[in-house]
């Protein structure tokens, strides 16, 4: 079982602990996409962490829209810890999506814009 090597995993006790700022920081610092992986809906050990995270992802997607960054770069999935295979699949899927979008405009535009100058 393998997942793409260009995925960086940040482990958190509950997906509910990931705030908008964490997602933004990751993107700002060079991640081309961010994928939140939490427990299945209704199965949160902390009762509502994954539910909150899902709403928060929507919020950040809106922020990304304002920045003209593709919303697809951010996604949230519910995968339980036993579903290693599903995780790998999702990881591949996410990588594929992000790859098809290309590098985050943050990098490309920064380069092209600076060239124009």
């Amino acid at each position: 079982m393998q997942y793409p090597s260009n995925i960086r995993i940040v482990k958190v006790p509950c997906i509910g602990t990931i705030g908008a700022i964490h997602i933004l920081k990751a993107l700002e610092n060079g991640a081309d996409g961010v994928c939140l992986v939490g427990c299945s809906e209704g199965k949160c050990e902390y009762s509502s962490g994954n539910y909150r995270a899902r709403k928060r992802v929507q919020y950040v997607k809106n922020l990304l829209g304002k920045l003209s960054i593709e919303k697809e770069r951010l996604e949230i999935y519910n995968i339980s810890a036993g579903e290693a295979r599903k995780f790998c699949e999702v990881a591949r899927e996410v990588t594929e999506t992000v790859r098809s979008l290309g590098p985050i405009p943050l990098k490309t535009k920064a380069i092209s814009n600076s060239k124009e100058e």
Binding site: I21, L24, K25, L27, E28, L63, K66, L67, S68, I69, P105, L106, K109, A110, I111, S112, N113, S114, E116, E117
Partner: peptide, 13 residues
């Protein structure tokens, strides 16, 4: 702040 930074970065500024 993060959004502004990203926005400026994309504008190459």
């Amino acid at each position: 702040a993060s959004m502004i930074r990203m926005d400026r970065k994309m504008a190459g500024q």
